[in-house]
Design a protein around this nucleic acid. Sequence first.
DNA 1: TGTTAGCACTCAACTCGATAGAGTGCTAAT
DNA 2: ATTAGCACTCTATCGAGTTGAGTGCTAACA
Lengths: 348, 348
Amino acid sequence: MMLDERKKKILQAIIRNYLETGEPVGSRTISKYTDLNLSSATIRNEMADLEELGYIVQPHTSAGRIPSDKGYRLYVDSMMEENAKQVEELKEMLVEKEEKMDHLLKQVAKVLAVNTNYATMITAPRCQRNKLKFIQLSRVDENQLLAVIVIEGNVIKNSMISISEHLDDETMLKLNMLLNTHLNGLSIEDISLGMITALKQQAGHYGTIIGDVIDAVAETIKEDEDLEIYTSGTNNIFKYPELADNRRASELINTFEEKQLLSQLIDDSDTTEPGHEIKVYIGEEAPIQTMKDCSIVTANYEFGEGMKGTIGIIGPKRMDYEKVVGTLKTIKVQLDALYQQDDKKKLP
Amino acid sequence: MMLDERKKKILQAIIRNYLETGEPVGSRTISKYTDLNLSSATIRNEMADLEELGYIVQPHTSAGRIPSDKGYRLYVDSMMEENAKQVEELKEMLVEKEEKMDHLLKQVAKVLAVNTNYATMITAPRCQRNKLKFIQLSRVDENQLLAVIVIEGNVIKNSMISISEHLDDETMLKLNMLLNTHLNGLSIEDISLGMITALKQQAGHYGTIIGDVIDAVAETIKEDEDLEIYTSGTNNIFKYPELADNRRASELINTFEEKQLLSQLIDDSDTTEPGHEIKVYIGEEAPIQTMKDCSIVTANYEFGEGMKGTIGIIGPKRMDYEKVVGTLKTIKVQLDALYQQDDKKKLP
DNA sequence: TGTTAGCACTCAACTCGATAGAGTGCTAAT
DNA sequence: ATTAGCACTCTATCGAGTTGAGTGCTAACA
C-alpha cells in the first residue's frame, strides 16, 4: 500500500508534534492540530494503517503513537520543507574569524551546540595524501637543532633534535639544501628506504641527523593523519529525557570523551558522494552502537587542496531535522567560503 | 570538647564505611565493623556527641549518619594513614613516555581516571614569564614567509606571514640576524614600542615584515599563557548516585566541557606554598559553585625553569581520599622526574 | 561512672489497591 | 467514507498500610 496524501499529512503532523513535546501523540491531538477537519475516529483509523505499515509505533496499548525509525526516515527523505531559517546570528559569529584553526573549530562547535540545543562535534580538515612542502633546520643552541616541517595545506610541525657536536653555518646550509632538494613534493609513500640511505651517504658524517629529520617528517605526517575531534554541548543530552537516564547518558558522555569512538562516525560519513554532503542517521542506522537511541546529522565541508572536515550534530530521534539540516548547510557554506577567502588573502 | 581517641576511631569507621557503601551508616554496623567491642547503644551515644560537634549529620531522623564536610576535613587532615598503594601499573604506563606533551597529558588524565574511578583534569605546564629564545624566518614560497618562534621551555609556535615581493637569500639572512640579536632573551614586557620602531627603521624597506613578526611573537606568547586543560573520565560521576541526578550531572558535565570554568580551580590551587603541593577541597570549600557536592584533590607538578602544571581529581565527597592523595603523589613524582630525565638527555 | 539491654518511637521505602484519564478499537448510524 | 459512542486497556498517581532500619531514652548492671 502506497501512502496517500492524507496519510502523509497525518504522519507529518504526528512527527512534528512529537518533536515538540516528546510525548506520544494521540488521535484527538492530530484531529485538532491539522487543518484536515477530520474527527479523532478517522484519524484513529488512519493511524492504525500507518502503524501496520511500520511508520509509527505504540509504546503500549493505550498510549498515543510515536514515529518509528522508518517514519523519521520517510520524513527526512521526502517530507521536510526547505526553508531558510534565521541563521544570520550564526553567520555573524563566524565572521569574526579566528586566527587559529583550532580556535575556529571549537567556536563553530560551540555556536552550533548553543544554537541547536544538541551535542555537536567537528573535525579539523584532513588531507588524503600529505606531501612535504618545505623543511627548515636551524640551530637553537649548542645541543639542539630545530626541524620545522611544512606539509601541503600549510600544516606546520616542529621537532627538536639533539646533537652531540657543533655544526657550523656552512654545514647547516648544506644539510638544508640537501633535504629540500630531495624531499620536497614527496608524500610519505614516495620516500623509500633506498632514498634515505642515499641521502645519509651524501650527508656523510652527518648521516644520523638526516635520519632523525626523516623520522620527524614521518611522524609529523602520521600525526596529522590521526584526526583531532572537537565536541561541544554534550550536556545538551540532558534536555531530552529519553536520553538522560543514567545508563544512556553515561554511555553517550563516554562516547563523546573517547574521541576515537567518534571516528567511526567520521569514517562512515566521509564516503559521501558529491552533491549529498549531508547525511542523516536515524536510530539503529547510526554506525556507533551507543547512539542507537539518537539521530545524527553530518556534513562534510571542504577546505581546498582536497582537504575535508566533518561536522556532526547528535540529538534525540525527535530532532528538529529541518532546523539542523538548514543550520548545517549554512555552516558548511561558511566554512567552504572561509577557504576561498584565505586563498584570496594570499594573493593580494 | 576535644575528640578523644574512641570518638576519633568511631568517626573514622563511619567515614570508611560510608566511602564504601554510599549509604548512611548506623550504630549497629559500627559496633560490628570496628574492633572496639562496644554495643550499638554505646556507639549511639558517641554518635550523638559527634553529631552535636558537627562531624556527622543525619539525612533524616531515623536514618544512619553520614560525614559532614567538617568530618571529612578532620579525616583528611589528621586521620588518613599514609600507605604506599600499588601504583606500579600506573608507573609502567607512564614509563613508555610519549613524545608529545599533549599526548602525554591526555594519557595521564586517562590513566588517573581509570585508576581512581573519578573524573580527572590536567593542565600543561605553564611559564610565569616567557622569554623569547630564538626566531627563525624562512621562505616557504613566493608569497609566504614562515616565522618560527621558540620561547623558554622549548615551546615552539609558527606563524605564516604574507609578503608581496620576493626576498633574496641575503635579505633573509639580514632580517634573521636583526631579529635574533635584538630580541633574544627578552620577555614580552621587555619589548618596548621604542625598540620596535628602532628595529623597523633598521630594516628599512622591510619594516612591515618586522612588524608582522613581532605581532606574531606577541601572539605566540599570549597564546601560551591561556592554558590548555585536558579532562578524562567525566562519565565516572555516574558511578555515584549522589552526583548522577539530572541537574547535577548536567552541570558537572558542562563544567568539564567549558574548560575555562575549571581555570578558577587551577588558579586557586596554584597558590600552594612549597611542601604542601596537594590540596583537598571538600564540598562547599570548592572554588567552583557547581562542584559543591563534590570533593576535589589537586596537585601541582613542576617541569623545571619555573614551569608548573596542575592535576585535579574530582569525585563525590565520599571519595577514597587515601588512595587519591597517594596516587596523585606518585603521579607528581613521576612528572617531576620526567623533566629531570629530559634534562639529562639534553646533555649526554 | 561507663556500658549495655530493652523498648517506644520515627521515618523513608516499599507494596498494594483503587482511581483517574488518556487513548484505542470496534460497531452502528449517518 | 466518516463519525459518534461506548467498552476496554493500560499507565500514572495517590493514599493507606506495612516493614525495617535506626534512633533516643531509661533503667539495670559491673
